[in-house]
Nucleic acid binder design. Sequence first.
DNA 1: TATGAATGAGTCTTCATTCAT
DNA 2: CATGAATGAAGACTCATTCAT
Lengths: 227, 227, 227, 227
Amino acid sequence: MTPRTGKIRQPGRPSASQAHPDLREQLLDAATGLFARQGIAATTMGQIAAQAGVTPAMVHYHFTNRDQLLDAVVDERVMRVIGYVWGPVGQGEAEPLALVAGLLERLFESAERQPWLPPLWLREVLNEGGQLRERMLPRLPSAKLQWLAERLADGQRAGSVNPAIEPRLVFLSLLGMTLLSLATASLWQRVPALEGLSREQLQRHVWAMLAGGLSMPPEEGHSGGCR
Amino acid sequence: MTPRTGKIRQPGRPSASQAHPDLREQLLDAATGLFARQGIAATTMGQIAAQAGVTPAMVHYHFTNRDQLLDAVVDERVMRVIGYVWGPVGQGEAEPLALVAGLLERLFESAERQPWLPPLWLREVLNEGGQLRERMLPRLPSAKLQWLAERLADGQRAGSVNPAIEPRLVFLSLLGMTLLSLATASLWQRVPALEGLSREQLQRHVWAMLAGGLSMPPEEGHSGGCR
Amino acid sequence: MTPRTGKIRQPGRPSASQAHPDLREQLLDAATGLFARQGIAATTMGQIAAQAGVTPAMVHYHFTNRDQLLDAVVDERVMRVIGYVWGPVGQGEAEPLALVAGLLERLFESAERQPWLPPLWLREVLNEGGQLRERMLPRLPSAKLQWLAERLADGQRAGSVNPAIEPRLVFLSLLGMTLLSLATASLWQRVPALEGLSREQLQRHVWAMLAGGLSMPPEEGHSGGCR
Amino acid sequence: MTPRTGKIRQPGRPSASQAHPDLREQLLDAATGLFARQGIAATTMGQIAAQAGVTPAMVHYHFTNRDQLLDAVVDERVMRVIGYVWGPVGQGEAEPLALVAGLLERLFESAERQPWLPPLWLREVLNEGGQLRERMLPRLPSAKLQWLAERLADGQRAGSVNPAIEPRLVFLSLLGMTLLSLATASLWQRVPALEGLSREQLQRHVWAMLAGGLSMPPEEGHSGGCR
DNA sequence: TATGAATGAGTCTTCATTCAT
DNA sequence: CATGAATGAAGACTCATTCAT
């Protein structure tokens, strides 16, 4: 690269933590929102700045570069939600279905409060090639994921959880059903077949699927029923 | 010669169907693959050309511009898979769980043959702001979706399908669990908690979740058991 | 950095050697000239492009980036001159003063033909922090420099070369006197004390200094004379 | 308050002479050093500020703008050295070789005390397009230069100075040999042929070259000796 | 005196697109 | 069919400069 100038750190640059929280927060909000709506790759620094009513140079002033902006979004937005959703897991309650119910509850709640959550997660974390993936990977609560899987496996051994399901995939199924439904919410309005579904209906549906899928099945095959 | 040809239609331009099918197909493959891996917004015409070993100018020669390339990807790649997955639905078989089983089967089969399917769908069709969304919307098999939902509703009325689930959301749940698991496959290898799962295990798990979720539940609450 | 796009090499990019020599050469000329006149750090890609009558994008088309443009200037302009100036050294002729005379001759000749030589060398190669320094260092003809120094040392031992001079610094002195005089040529016209000197006068002066400085001095101190 | 102050002169602005000499001097030092090391064009106000541990705004506070900072560097740093080097010339001593010896002595002495001298002079004053050139031109000691040239010419007429040299170029030769050697000092360590030379060796060499070049040559050609 | 916030202008670089050959 | 040359528009990033505090 041989930039034309050497690099000496300048005092006075706001470091990720302090300094005029107002605009910084506004920019993070703008960024998170645009990233969710358009995807990270399709969002320019200029769009983010414009949404906050400032010049693109201000985005660089506060985050130094695109990369560190992504870091900030992860640190100060995404991780916060993960913490909230997974927080209670691993201490106290250990009944598998109740754990899952809690996760579902908190996930829906978070998505309601932070509408950027489903699209952003789906596209940039869970999806292959997502731009937050590498950043998130080391910060995923893998211990808690593991713990949940173990509780489910315990349940299977104890005969209270459907032995056909794979404990390690349960959370992924929960995420898939939830996020996909939420991320496609705006789509429904325009597909006649799906019009007019409420968030509550959605949550109830996902819970029914999970509860049914995880519970011990009746004796015979798939057409079930207890007679 | 012919200085200043208008935009209309140049003689000798290949119309979407004939003309050296080889390269055209190669370019579509390259495009589809890169779109899936990096996202559409992050993929340049040059990258597509390079992957096929030609110049960017050739991509324009074959598709005229970026927009029509996306159209072609939708028409000649994505729709083909949708057609295959939904083809058998709506005629013959009408038993809900069997319908779902068929869709799942064909979806997994397609994902195996076209590995670009899960990421591309997740990111560019299902997700908010996906770049193929608008293009796909009018071409979704909404009639068939509707028909599936009605069969499930029939099942609920007949007492053979879990009345707590929402028939219109079942396919979305199926998609969510399937695509998400497949799209995250490469991620598992690196999360200790999820290492070493096979595609078969995954398919069995999803089926167990669906079958369990859709079947009539035993009498009481979520901890199940039949008496 | 995380550029928004991956890098796949594109065919069709001209590689440093072939491809439309015209504009490439023109751009190299423009670059070399501007670098000499304004310094590398103060010269923008846009200025180079403008001087050749094209858009800045063309400079990138031909050289990919600023760094490789510098490489090209070194390879295809500067090294060529070095080769010419030092070419004959090390074979045949070994009489020290004749060697020096040859170097001086060829240096002046080169500077006449390539007026960018003195300023560019002075600023970007010889001077501390010069932007071509690191690039040139491994390519300097150090073997030949060494060889010249050894011939001078031989001369000193044989009593034909002034024992007070440092053989290893002789070429640097030659360079200093020559380049500085040439680089300041345009300055002379404006300093009354120096007006109206010709290149020939200059060359004769430098030669006189070198010849006098290198030759065996008369017996006594600095006010000389043979009496 | 006082909204919209004009450009004229703000009360409380430090005028080039008083006001917290500490920081002002520090900034000038930082600027001079960076200019010498990287070149003026490549040095930003921010780098200068950073090196002095303050914000870029402070540099503007003290120097108003980049241009006036350059003026200050010339006035308060560069001219000081010129004054010292040329001070004694023109009064008293008039023996040409002794004059030259004095200049050489003081130049080396200055370079030792102000290591920024050689690179800065070479790049920004002597070299074509140097950014201090125009600023320095009217302030060069041209009368003294002229006077030195005349004394040398006197010597030629009197038969004590080599008639082949050009009196007006002698100082340039001195400068060239000295500055170039000093500016390349850091380079030597890395060119095997030049490793390990000391400043004293250098000074002795330059003096030998000058003394030899300026002294009356023996009768014959370049291989010299007094027979 | 000193700073943090803010900006406008500019620089390098990329990219879709065009076109003559 | 295919390419190399060329461009305009845009994007990330830098920097001198201003200003309220």
